[in-house]
Amino acid sequence: MTMQKTIEVDKQQVEKMVDDWKKRVSDLYSTIELWLKDSDYYIKRGSKLKMYEELMSQFNVHATDVDTADIYKDNKIVLTIMPIGLWVIGANGIVDILSNKGSCKLVDTSEQFETPQWKLFNGNKKNGVEFNKQSFFQLLNK
């Protein structure tokens, strides 16, 4: 896992990070939507999660909402995707993926404002695996 660079932070920077996080999450859902095309599954953006992390409070940045998403098969939820936090020790954001069989984590190991590098941690792989169409379908069919 990469270490984050130390950068000077101000209110504008925090707002930019929050916007970037929301975009990365939204792009993630769009990517999954593409992967699910022509399959028995579909993704639907679900309820919103309130986002108000410590740095936002520190710099007086307003709370905001971030989308969750659900993946359905036969009109039943099979996976739920919940963005848990942007500021994480040793990573650039973390997302929970929940199913009837348990949970796993999707961790963005990229540096700030760089192209996301999502890694999937599902408990049995200590260092995580690249999150791509193959690992995603393995998770769906687990």
Binding site: E54, V88, K126
Partner: peptide
């Protein structure tokens, strides 16, 4: 991690997100 430990130990909660698999590796 120590800062987070103190937050939890004194009745608060995490002030940043924590990934337990990452914590274990560290």
């Amino acid at each position: 991690y120590y800062t987070q430990r103190n937050n939890i130990g004194h009745g608060g909660s995490f002030t940043i997100a924590i990934s337990i698999p990452t914590v274990i590796a560290d």
